[in-house]
Design a protein around this nucleic acid. Structure first.
Lengths: 152, 152
DNA sequence: GTTGATGCAAAACTTTTGCAACACG
DNA sequence: CGTGTTGCAAAAGTTTTGCATCAAC
C-alpha cells in the first residue's frame, strides 16, 4: 500500500520549520496528489493552477516546489529536457524506490519499481566510504511505439 | 585497459557525417582528454580554453559539446546544479559503465564502476517493452570528509 | 505589530539562434 | 565558388531575487 502525505501532516511538518500552510502551498501539493503519475515542471504546475482559476504567481510555484523538495515531499528529477520536473514522493512501508525509463525518440517516461539496487547501495557504501542515502536510476531506450516507427 | 578516442579517429568519424575537424573542435576534445577525470560544464571548458590563450567563442563550445555528445564521444550528465556537464566516454573492451556518487553536502562527485546492472537492463527491457540502450545511475550521500564534519 | 508569504517585475543564468564573415578544398 | 564553421550579439527559456504589499496570529 502506498501512502501519500496528508494536508494535516504537511501542516505539522511545515510548522516544525516555522513555515505556514498557505493556500498556495496547499494547492501546489494538491496538483501532485491529483497527478501522482506525472512528472510536472514548474511551468506546468503553474499552468494547471491557472486553468483551475487560481491567481498564484510562477515565483510562488518555484518557491513551493523548492520547499516541498527540501522536505522530501516532492522529488526533483531531471530528464534532460532543460527544465526540472517534480513528482510526489510516495512512501510505503518498505520505502520502495521507483525509477524511470525514458524514450530517446519521443521523450515518453515510464516508471518501474525495482529493489535490486538496495543491496548494491550497501556494497557501494563500503567501497566508496560514502554514507549513501539515496539513488536514482534512469534507463534510456525506445518505447514500443517508437520501435515500430523505426522499423518502417 | 581504457582507451580514449584519438584525433585521427575523430577526424574520420567527423568526415563520415560531412563535418570538419576544426582547431576549435580539436581543442575542446583536448580539454576532456587532459581532464578525463572531471565533469566540465560548457562555461568551464570555455574558461579553460580562454586561459590557454584561445579565442574560441562560448557558442562554439556549446556547438562542439553537442556534436561530440551526438557522436558518443562525450557524455552529457546532469548533477542537478543547473548546468549540463560533460565527460569523455572511455571505451574499454567490455564497454564498462561507470556511474557517480554525489555528496549532498559539498557536491563532490566520485565515480564507481559496476556491471551489476547489465542483467537488470535485460530484465527491465522485457518487463517494459522498451528497447533499452543505456542507463545512468546516481547515488547520493555524504562523503567521508562531510561525514566527519557532521559529527561535530 | 511582527513574522513569514505572495505577486510582480526585473535580474540572473544557461543555452540556442541568426547572421555576416571566414576557411579551405 | 561552395560548404560547413566561427564569433558575436541577440534571443529564448528557466529559475532566482528584490521589494512593496498582504495575511495571520
Amino acid at each position: 500500500m502506498t501512502v501519500m502525505i496528508t494536508m494535516e501532516e504537511l501542516k505539522k511538518r511545515l510548522q516544525e520549520r516555522q513555515c505556514k500552510l498557505t493556500p498556495q502551498r496547499q494547492i501546489v501539493l494538491q496538483v501532485f496528489i491529483e497527478n501522482h503519475d506525472e512528472h510536472l515542471s514548474a511551468e506546468e504546475v503553474h499552468q494547471i493552477l491557472r486553468e483551475q482559476g487560481s491567481e498564484i504567481g510562477l515565483a510562488t510555484v518555484y518557491r513551493s516546489l523548492e520547499l516541498l523538495s527540501d522536505m522530501d515531499i516532492l522529488q526533483k528529477i531531471d530528464f534532460g529536457d532543460g527544465r526540472s520536473r517534480y513528482e510526489i514522493n510516495k512512501r510505503d512501508e518498505k520505502q520502495h524506490h521507483h525509477h524511470h525509463i525514458i524514450c530517446l525518440e519521443c521523450g515518453n517516461v515510464k516508471e518501474f519499481e525495482e529493489d535490486l539496487l538496495e543491496n548494491l547501495e550497501e556494497l557501494i557504501s563500503k567501497k566508496s566510504n560514502f554514507n549513501i542515502v539515496d539513488h536514482q536510476v534512469k534507463f534510456y531506450g525506445y518505447c514500443q511505439e517508437c520501435q515500430k516507427k523505426r522499423e518502417n
